[in-house]
Write a protein that binds this DNA or RNA. Structure first.
Lengths: 353, 353
DNA sequence: TGTTAGCACTCCTTGAAATCGAGTGCTAAC
DNA sequence: GTTAGCACTCGATTTCAAGGAGTGCTAACA
């Protein structure tokens, strides 16, 4: 991309984008001429705007309308023109401080507060425990024909499952199995616990019966629980209605459906997580997004880290004319807050999910 | 309510409602005159419609429009005029048969299929275990300073929690506590396990240390996990857009927000569950609903039973002119299907939630 | 050479007026 | 009790003119 814009052109582009963010309507030369401190006439602005149009930074919806920023224009804005703004996100901080015991509730609340703060739709993914290691595993007898398998991973994520038996299993066998499982599996990253390893365990167990084999399979299933479909909480989907360019029936339906289904959001988050080694804040504008429904939107995402390899993603979805400065700053602050909260609560109660 | 309508009036009312269900627009006398097999002229219909208007069964939006059903009209339709229709809900049956391992997924799928079948918004509550009894409880050591408490209830619901310790707890104490907990609590309905009972346990334990007391409190918290906020899955919220009378920006925003927030839906479900001892299908029309946002909607709910005191609620939310016959029949069939599926899978894996 | 005023032109928006048409209520006849 | 006929109502749709914001171009100016 050539970036040989004069300072004045940049100033004008920035003014156009900021004005368009507020009004949502094409902005004309006269408005800019008054808005900026450039002290040039509207005619001069017109000439400059004509250039900017040719360069592809702004677009003219129709002959006699003002200009609106193009994706390229937004991109330049986000990459260069936007200035860091320190604003306080007191509300989120307060929300965090009030002791919320369940991660699920914290996440839902974060999404909610963020949505009402920004007036955009928000999403937050439940942190994944990539590379998390197995910490403790235990089989216990519930009654004659039922066992319960409990698996605790790093980050205190608990998974469990009831295992139904065809025939009774004696205490000694259960004890042996527990010993076997713990000595062999503890400390291993959960994704390393695969079928081959289970097969070896079965051999080691001596497979007195199909029963033991079946229990081991069930334990493996408990450990391997749906590693790849990650849960996402959303909020503020109806905020799309606040932006005329997104609120016609067609678009709104598609967008809100996307938010309701969540599958596509999950895909986006996955892509985001694998894409960027940098865990910073990322901005996707219009067609840069893999979701066609969102071609008229921008998405700002941030990865939050919880230590021990756990990390999740927060995202904000709004119109292209979203207030990037505010959103980016919100997310940056939030990243830090979330980090602290979870570190503090790290050893508190988690629920498996 | 007087119910001295002539047969012809009933037929006409029914015809008006059915036509209005399809079109969503006020229906005039001529339409009815052609639609029905009464072989009377539109003028006659007009006279009858005039009567029905006086009686409050139908409403005239403005002087020169056709008529639309009133809440009272719908109520009569649902209570008397609607005929049972046996239609196949093959899709749901298929969905059920394909082995879905997780209750969560089954429920989400049910909501989804139902929404796409009916073209209305749907909700389904995760079954509650009212009166469910404690089946098994166990404390295990994860490491020096962490225990995990596992509680299994009837219906194979598992709850668990990590308990952090200030100081190490020896194996013997853990063993004692397990014995104490199981002998005293097994078989008890979970809502009977209250603070008083825990206090008595503490006494029995002899309280060597504050440590034991704290662990017991944590166990109690694990058992008592948020009994009162029930989880709800929704689908098809964007279906509201399909009905012009609900799809103006104001109303759609409110309705979809209600579906996104879910709190009000949960309240409605709770009310429904406590209200009706009859576990059948129930219809709420317009102002009969406790949610003001939904005054232009109707809601059809059904309770599904899973045995052992577990039950949940399915609901369909649509315009007042919803196709009650189809919806009611869908729900009735679904009730049976759900029942069977869960009974079959009853001993399969459940997740705590 | 860059800036500015002026002007014709485009095209969307707004609002008023005209038209349309579905539906009604009433009356008179069957 | 039913029906045909007719005047009337009133929202919806269409049409048309006026208004206005904004542009591009040209010519003059510093």
């Amino acid at each position: 991309m050539e970036d040989n814009l004069t300072d004045r052109k940049k100033k004008i582009l920035k003014a156009i984008i900021k004005t368009y963010m507020e009004t949502g309507e094409p902005v004309g030369s006269r408005t800019i001429s008054k808005y900026t401190d450039l002290n040039v006439s509207s005619a001069t602005i017109r000439n400059e705007m004509s250039d900017l149009t040719d360069l592809g930074y702004i677009i003219q919806p129709h002959t006699s309308a003002g200009r609106i920023p193009s994706d390229k224009g937004y991109r330049l804005y986000v990459d260069e023109l936007m200035q860091e703004k320190e604003d306080e996100i007191e509300e989120i901080r307060n929300l965090m401080i009030e002791k919320t015991d369940k991660m699920e509730k914290v996440l839902k609340n974060v999404a909610k507060v963020l949505a009402s703060n920004t007036n955009y739709a928000t999403m937050i993914s439940v942190p994944q425990y990539s590379g998390s290691k197995l910490k403790f595993i235990q089989l216990s007898r519930v009654n004659e024909l039922q066992l319960v398998a409990v698996v605790v991973c790093e980050g205190n994520v608990i998974r469990n499952q009831i295992i139904d038996l065809d025939e009774e299993m004696d205490d000694e066998t259960i004890l042996k199995l527990n010993l076997l499982l713990n000595t062999n599996l503890n400390g291993l990253p959960i994704q390393d616990i695969n079928l081959g390893m289970i097969a070896r365990l079965k051999e080691q167990a001596g497979i007195h019966s199909g029963l033991v084999a079946r229990v081991l399979d069930a334990v493996a299933a408990t450990i391997q629980v749906d590693e790849d479909d990650l849960e996402i909480y959303t909020s503020g989907a109806t905020n799309f209605f606040k932006y005329p360019e997104l609120s016609d029936k067609q678009r709104a339906t598609e967008l809100i459906s996307t938010f309701e289904e969540k599958q596509q959001l999950a895909d986006l988050v996955k892509e985001h997580m694998s894409d960027s080694e940098n865990t910073g804040v990322q901005v996707y504008i219009g067609d840069e997004l893999p979701i066609p429904t969102m071609k008229d939107c921008s998405v700002v995402t941030a990865t939050y880290e919880l230590g021990e390899g756990m990390h999740g993603t927060i995202g904000i979805v709004g119109p292209k004319r979203m207030d990037y400065e505010n959103v980016v700053n919100n997310l940056k602050t939030l990243k830090v807050e979330l980090d602290q909260v979870f570190r503090k609560n790290k050893n508190d109660n988690d629920d498996s999910q």
